[in-house]
Design a protein around this nucleic acid. Sequence first.
RNA 1: GCGGGGGUAGCCAAGCCAGGUCAACGGCGCAGGACUUAAGAUCCUGUUGUGAAGACAUUCAAGGGUUCGAAUCCCUUCCCCCGCACCA
Length: 969
Amino acid sequence: MRYNPQTIEEKWQEKWGDEGIFQPEISDKEKYFITIPYPYLNGNLHAGHTRTFTMGDVIARHRRMLGQNVLFPMGFHATGTPLIGLAELIAKRDPETMRVYTELHGIPEDLLEKLDSPEALAAYFGREAEAAMRLIGYSIDWRRKFTTIDPAYKKFIEWQFERLHELGCVVKGSHPVRWCPNDRNPVEDHDLLRGEGANILDYTLLKFRLKSDALNTPDASDTSDESNVWILPCATLRPETVFGVTNLWINPDVVYVKARVNSEQWIVSEEAYQKLTYTDREVERIGEISGRDLVGKTVENPVIDHDVLILPASFVDPANGSGVVMSVPAHAPYDYLALRDLKGVELIDYGILDLSDIELISLIAVPEMGEFPAVEIVEELGVKDQSDPLAEQATKLVYRREFHHGVLKNNTGEYAGVAVSKIKDILTRDLIERNLADIFYEFSELPVVCRCGTTCVVAMVKGQWFLNYSNPEWKSKVYAHLARMQILPAELRIEFENKIDWLKDKACARRKGLGTRLPWDDEWLIESLADSTIYMSYYIISKYIGQLDVEQLTPEFFDYVLLGKGKIDDVLVDHDLTRQIRDDFEYWYPVDIRSSGKDLIPNHLLFFIFHHVALFPEEKLPKAIAINGFVSLEGEKMSKSKGPLLTLKQSVGEYGADVVRLYILSTSEHTQDADWRSEGVESTRKQVERFYNIAHDVIEMPEAEADCEPKVIDRWMMSRLQRRVQETETALSVLRTRHALQNAFYLLMSDLKWYQRRGGISSLKEVMNVWIRLMAPFTPHICEELWEAIGGDGFVSLADYPVPDPDLIDSNSERAEKLVEDTLDDIEEITRVAGITPEKITLFTAPLWKNLVLKQALIAKQSGKLDMGALMKELMSNPEIKKHARDVPKFAQKLVRDVQNWNDEQVAYSLAGVDELDVLAESAEFIGKEFGCSVAVLDADSAGDDVDLQGKRRFAEPGRPAIYIGGQQ
RNA sequence: GCGGGGGUAGCCAAGCCAGGUCAACGGCGCAGGACUUAAGAUCCUGUUGUGAAGACAUUCAAGGGUUCGAAUCCCUUCCCCCGCACCA
């Protein structure tokens, strides 16, 4: 009987389909609703999908066999821009695209040429994806499939956004993006020549007012006239240090711009001025002023009553921030160094006579550091001056210590006592409210250059629609629900918490792409991640779409079926049908588990929770999330657009569905990345074949042969089987597929090998019956085939999943086999090391007195009172032991040392013991066969000296018989 | 930089949370043997070193510490992977 995966797999997929066994309806049974993120339709499914989806299918199949009513649906994602981009590239026959899609995605060229519209692509890849998922045997209810550009789905999305809008979750605002002024477009990482890693940082601009002795105005002292007020905004990431400013820095060699910014007058560098024009401020250039002319002037600190001088500094980079820098020498090494560097420099040209008035102001208390951390670190590192590269390091060091451990001092007024790590947002918000500060966005690395060669800026997109994820109330509801959710693996919970914390408002509308329009503002398309947040509920509806008219899908309909709100009279869909859908929803929802790749944690999975929490009552919120890692190919990262790529279809075509499924899940688990290696798949194929062959041997075995009295080895086999079943179930319950398969497949297989080696027969059929069911979630086709062959009832996919039977756990037989195995290993080692070809093996079990000593020691250990003195006293009171008084101390001493280190389990194991003489005698024939010689088993007490040729028997210990091997060296 | 996950014998990879049967599960590869006309398949054995009797020595990124005892706990350092947003 040759294993032919293609035949078997086709056969069972057809049967499953014909009988519709994966099309659940509501019933009295407990339900289980599992979903996997639907695939995006810009290519064929590949090894990465194979992993995530197979994971889901195994969960579904496992739950189904546990007796739950399992719903496992699937849809397709087509919203957004990639499909449009791809269609354009195909339409213009872009050579690279044509190559990738013919070679890697395996699309015939003539067919590919026709896929020049997003709709054609979506239709094609949708068909291919479904075919691929059927080919690998996923137990999906295909009646519910849909695509995110279906008219009915759009109605659903419109309803969702209508609701979110009402709830105040969608708001209008502005937000910063990386922007190419030349292309007049936001840029993404792959659009960039330089600065791919650049983040957008939010600097605080602190508004220092120029004092009255200022600029070209006849009567500058009249500050009631706004035109006389000039603001020097300083950009900083550490706004709290404004309390410690001693001076400002201006680059004397730079020409600054005087500008009207909204209703104020600012002085900033040329570059900063340009940047401001891309923000949502109204900006007008008024004039220029040289940095040199600003030096020596005085400004007012916006937060405290303190006037400070403007000093010259060459380190001020006009391209960075506003080109105006505030100086906090107590906490910023550069400022301290620059100030120190100015000492003794002639500044009279700037009208500055003396810097001796400038005193450092400390505002942060850091444990184990003095008043002026910057000074301390500069001296510690021996930084020479502001151009010394060490200055950078000093800055980081101070920052790190102050940020993590620093607390604001009393001179920060109402903020005293606040941790530095918490102050930024609070202070910035307060100062903006009082119009003393502003936000200024800047890249974390400069420059950022677009592919077109233009330097990018941060631009504010105006009038954008946002999901206001930063809303603390929304967030706290999400936190609260997260705490109730199961996260697998559990270690990732903290990651979710961190990401919830980190999440800011998210722009949710786009100008370009496929998708649904915002119902209240049809110039905007709903962004594609935002339209994929609660679609699991749509699977309930999608099954019935053929029975209703899209125009009937009014908000009242969705309110009624999804939220149980409103009156059925307001619903246009047939009322019986509506009630049916409502019942379905009540039965199937919430999602019991969402299983996904780890790349979706900071986006989709987060939004999934956010939107559910916003829209649904607590009992309809998702219960669990499971995460799995990526898949690489022969150590290389996969890429849909460049390769390498292995499609699901290719891999199944080459190895068969069951082999692919088994391989992808056994090679790694949880967040570990799996590496697809053809060598490994090949060996998995052989293992599956072996499984098939073993099974057939067993199935074809005549009943009579199998029918005999159960021996130790049979009890051992059944006992091991229970343990494997138990481990598999435990592992599967937390989705440790690798661990599950190690037990369900590999370890069980090696148990079975040992069983057969030991001559076991009578349990084979029963083991096989369990084994087939145990493997069914992983390799369903081959298991159906074997289940049928073994005469199982119905589909194995619907059979009961094995549960361990505690009554069949037989520790005694396991201990017995352990003894045999250990003895075998010892004999093996002796023959190898001594180079003996054995002719006769004699085994001596330990004498009674040694067993008594051990037992006594174990009992003492168990009661926590094992010590040599007391033990000896007790031992010697036993006449049987006392007979061997000469040998007892040495043996006992070694024993005490060993037993002292044992844990409870070991003690109990050893205490239970086995009848060694009996066990070894029974396996003498087996051992003899293994070594091709005769084996005698004696007990050390009764064996005569004539059989103990080399006096070996004195080495016998409990659990470790003495061995004498006669033979040729 | 911040956050998360890692570094175990030729490779992959358990063990680490709950320290002690851990020279360290399992698989692959490799070597030897059995079976076979041969190959394949299957089975057995070995795969840190030493060892003519079942042993001993040295290992779990590196260094230090806690402990009777550390791959496992603590500290420091080095290295790798992933995410950091308007892409899906």
